[in-house]
Design a protein around this nucleic acid. Structure first.
Length: 570
RNA sequence: UGGGGCGUCGCCAAGCGGUUAAGGCACAAGACUUUGACUCUUGUACGCGUAGGUUCAAAUCCUACCGCCCCAGCCA
């Protein structure tokens, strides 16, 4: 490895430096989730960095489950996480569990006791909290801080043996109760905790803490660069202390980066759990969730997600990425891939008054305008068809060039029609349009070669299959909407800030819109679950597992850009 | 008011003493169009949190302010 290429971010600069200086002669990273929930897109940033850097430097990346708190962990999550990582297309080198190393970690703890840098503390957690001091005042030493090595060893052994009740004692590092860094004020290394562990069962009743386990585990695995998010920056002195005390020959280097935030997206595991448990969503895989299970179900592709993270970049500044960037990545990934087809989400019946009775045309439609290799399909056109309700306006504004009374419009791949009459029901609602059709304007024929401003998607009566379509918006309101929702009277956004503190108050009531009466062409109805299409003019959609034989269900992954919607709004 | 970080276009983000301060998203205008999509073209920081200073030259170095984030779990 003489040439490392161009560093594309500050982490790679550090690594280049380490390789040049000889601090390391290879690169080994790790992705260390706690199996206490499903992975979300925030984790994908770490995944892309951990695996991406390993790959760039011809190194490797381990998958390690930091399963040191059995009260929160479960095998369904370890399985789910592995599946998600595989789905994204990342390949780990070794698969480890922190729990595989409990014995080894116990030995190191004993070593620290023998060195006189760890002790058993009998204080209650309350006493410990009080004696820790505050951000501005130093803490005071525990009365148990100066126990003999022998006594500490004996006590720690008996902690493991189960002689003491939960919470009665802890093992602590002996560092500095006056340190300005709170984490260095004799951090807890082990606690007594009787709880069934998903891997080790009831073998252990003491469990190591993150600040003890994580750095040592990195060192044991031979990790060179331990990449984590910014909130661990303050843990770094402790990380280094731990590895130094255990006397590892090649201490890993911890480097921190800013975690991912996306506008109007819930990104905290705690909050996501609450959405699930309190029923605001249907589950971890509700397509509105930012979890990978949910994004997969909604129809996002690994390519789009990884491209998004690549475009977001890596730096140390706290940031919130515009959700529009993710949408742009999805559209780009899908644009040349997804076959096109027609679906009418909110149908309006159109009857062609001059269409010959009983005539049915079979029309050939391309599956993709730029990729003929994706083939063609046949759709049927007859006297009755359905168009999108929003494509007709009785009193259209200036720049509207869809259908309106007396106006002509082209039906994609079919004929040009003209609206002759509007049929309404007793309540005045429009129920049907009577249109004339230019029988010489069939696509591909000479009569079709005239300028018509609007082109609409449609579904013919002969082909129309019922479907349910689900539309999504961000799960959170934007700042302005949230302020309005909480207090329409408020003058300033700031005034409602405290009410907005609970994210539940900022949930978007329109995050899910169900279109129960959509009509789709057969290609869409018959596609397998997971199939993706561009519904012409409506967006990209993916068939949901909720689909049944007679009723396909589609999720809108992302809408198409809609210039008209913008014009109409102003 | 202790300590650790961070502040470059609406949102991300390059930049590492000498460049007209990259690029993407968003936005705007135009071309093309049987998807108001796609594609294409064009435009968008005389400015780099603020104020001073060093230098022939500063977003890059120094000083002082200002703002934001993290830390007082027997969570990770």
């Amino acid at each position: 490895m003489e040439e490392y290429g161009r560093a594309s971010n500050f982490i790679e600069e550090f690594i280049d430096e380490d390789l040049r200086s000889g601090r390391f002669d290879r690169v080994k990273t790790r992705f260390p989730p706690e199996p206490n929930g499903f992975l979300h897109i925030g984790h994908v940033k770490a995944l892309c960095i951990d695996f991406g850097i390993a790959e760039k430097y011809s190194g490797s990346c381990n998958l390690r489950f930091d399963d040191t708190n059995p009260t929160k962990e479960d095998t369904v999550f370890v399985e789910g996480i592995q599946k998600d990582i595989e789905w994204l297309g990342f390949h780990w080198d070794k698969l480890y569990f922190a729990s595989d190393f409990f014995e080894k970690l116990y030995e190191i703890a004993c070593l620290l006791i023998e060195k006189g840098v760890a002790y058993v503390d009998d204080q209650t957690s309350e006493e410990m909290r009080l004696n820790r001091g505050t951000l501005k005042t130093p803490g005071v030493n525990s009365p148990y801080r100066d126990r003999s090595v022998e006594e500490n060893l004996d006590l720690f052994r008996r902690m493991r043996a189960g002689e003491f009740p939960d919470g009665s004692r802890v093992l602590r590092a002996k560092i500095d109760m006056a340190s300005p860094n709170m984490l260095m004020r004799d951090p807890t290394l082990y606690r007594i905790l009787r709880h069934h562990h998903h891997k080790t069962g009831d073998k252990w009743c003491i469990y190591p803490m993150y600040d003890f386990q994580h750095p040592l585990q990195d060192a044991i695995e031979g990790i060179t660069h331990s990449l984590c998010s910014l909130e661990y920056e303050i843990h770094r002195p402790l990380y280094d202390w731990m590895v130094a005390q255990a006397a590892f020959a090649h201490p890993p280097r911890q480097i921190e980066f800013a975690r991912l935030n996306i506008t109007r997206t819930v990104m905290s595991k705690r909050h996501l759990r609450r959405l699930v448990e309190e029923g605001y969503v249907s589950g971890w895989d509700d397509p509105r969730m930012p979890t990978l299970v949910a994004m997969r179900r909604r129809g996002y592709t690994p390519e789009a997600i990884k491209d998004f993270l690549a475009r977001v970049g890596v730096a140390k500044a706290d940031s919130t990425v515009d959700g529009a960037l993710l949408e742009a990545c999805v559209r780009e990934a899908m644009g040349s891939e997804a076959p096109r087809a027609m679906a009418v989400l909110n149908p309006l019946k159109v009857t062609l008054t001059n269409w010959p009775e009983g005539r049915v045309d079979e029309l050939t439609m391309e599956n993709h305008p730029d990729h003929p290799e994706l083939g063609e399909r046949t759709v049927r056109f007859s006297k009755v068809c359905y168009i999108e309700r929003e494509d007709f306006m009785e009193n259209p504004p200036g720049k509207f060039f869809r259908l309106a009374p007396g106006r002509e419009v082209r039906l994609k791949g079919a004929y040009i029609i003209k609206c002759e009459a509007v049929v309404k029901d007793a309540s005045g609602e429009i129920v049907e349009l009577s249109c004339s059709v230019d029988l010489n304007s069939r696509s591909g024929e000479e009569g079709a070669n005239r300028k018509v401003k609007g082109t609409l998607h449609w579904v013919g009566e002969a082909d129309a299959r019922p479907a349910e379509v689900r539309l999504y918006e961000p799960i959170l309101l934007d700042e302005y909407e949230a302020a309005e929702a909480l207090d329409p009277e408020a003058e300033e956004v700031e005034e409602t800030a405290s009410n907005a503190a609970d994210f539940i108050n900022r949930l978007n009531p329109n995050s899910l819109t169900v279109m129960p009466d959509a009509l789709v062409e057969p290609a869409i109805a018959e596609a397998p679950v997971g199939a993706r299409f561009q519904f012409l003019r409506m967006g990209y959609f993916c068939k949901d597992p909720d689909s049944s034989e007679g009723k396909p269900v589609y999720n809108r992954i992302v809408p198409l850009k809609d210039t008209w919607a913008k014009v109409a709004r102003n």
